[in-house]
């Protein structure tokens, strides 16, 4: 694979740089636009260099948001998003690890049937089942609550499936050795299976956290009380709410702050995350 072909090298670099630029440019625009005074955007021209009002804009967004349009301060929405994303992530992981454990290690009637039922729900994205789910959540009185925000999104076929695939690669002899060593199913789960899957769980954690953080449609539907707005839907409210022009500088500051937590999660979990995707300790 180690070849030196200048033309191929150049071509692939051009393609890659173009791709990177395509992805990075919007983020650049958001960062550049956030420190400008409100007047800049009224001219309809997007600036390409940063403005002078960084501190002030971010402080306004953080503490006030766009109160006249009914959006709460960013700090509150960030907190809501964090609670929702963590609840979804931890809930998903807990449920999928336990159900994968059941499916892989226990022989119970209709095991395969249950596996396929779980697997089938993979094919139904949130949008498809959103109306009945909304009805259920509304009937249970969970509108405008953290429970309503997170519980319907916790059930996850994807995570169950991935954890199952990992469990199946763990040699069966380990389970047998544990049985001979006097470890019951739960002890085996705790002492051997979980420590072995820690890197995979970390990888899933990152993916699920971003999934939870980026939820847009669901929070938009079930929250009417600004107290429970999450950041991703809050951005939309900031743009459309109120009579005046959108305050783009505040919107952009919000966007930048909304993008930060997932980036931080990836940075902190990167070592485990990459390990989990590439290697397993077996």
């Amino acid at each position: 694979m180690v070849e030196n072909r200048p033309l191929g090298n150049l071509l692939s670099h051009v393609v890659l740089i173009f791709g990177v630029a395509l992805v990075v440019f919007p983020i650049y625009v958001a960062i550049i636009a956030s420190p400008h005074p409100p007047g800049t955007f009224l001219r309809g021209v997007m600036p390409l260099l940063p403005g002078p009002n960084a501190l002030e804009n971010y402080r306004t967004a953080w503490t006030e948001g766009r109160s006249r349009a009914g959006t709460p301060p960013i700090s509150l929405m960030l907190t809501n998003s964090l609670i929702m994303a963590l609840a979804i992530t931890i809930g998903k992981l807990a449920i999928s690890i336990i159900s994968a454990f059941a499916i892989v290690y226990f022989r119970f009637p209709f095991r395969i049937f249950f596996f396929w039922i779980i697997f089938l729900t993979l094919m139904l994205p949130v949008e498809v089942r959103i109306v009945p789910t909304f009805q259920v959540v509304a009937d249970l009185g969970m509108l405008n609550s953290y429970a309503g925000l997170s519980i319907p999104l916790i059930a996850s076929a994807t995570a169950t499936f991935l954890v199952r695939q990992f469990f199946m690669t763990v040699p069966e002899e380990l389970m047998e050795a544990a049985r001979v060593d006097g470890a019951g199913p739960m002890k085996f789960f705790r002492d051997i299976l979980l420590p072995l899957s820690i890197t995979n769980i970390a990888a899933l954690f990152v993916i699920m956290f971003i999934y939870g953080w980026n939820q847009y449609l669901w929070p938009l539907l079930i929250t009417t009380d600004p107290e429970y707005y999450t950041i991703v839907m809050g951005i939309q409210r900031m743009v459309t709410g109120g009579d005046s022009e959108p305050l783009w500088h505040l919107v952009m500051a919000t966007v930048v702050m909304a993008a930060l937590p997932p980036v931080l999660v990836i940075l902190f979990m990167q070592r485990l995350f990459v390990k989990g995707l590439t290697e397993t300790e077996k």
Binding site: P171, E173, E176, G182, A183, I192
Partner: peptide
């Protein structure tokens, strides 16, 4: 009886050591 209750010990072909 469960394996653990049989008072036996087993050596596996691939050793089945706990890797962690």
């Amino acid at each position: 009886l469960e394996p653990a209750e049989r008072d036996i010990a087993m050596v596996f072909q691939n050793y089945a050591l706990y890797p962690h």
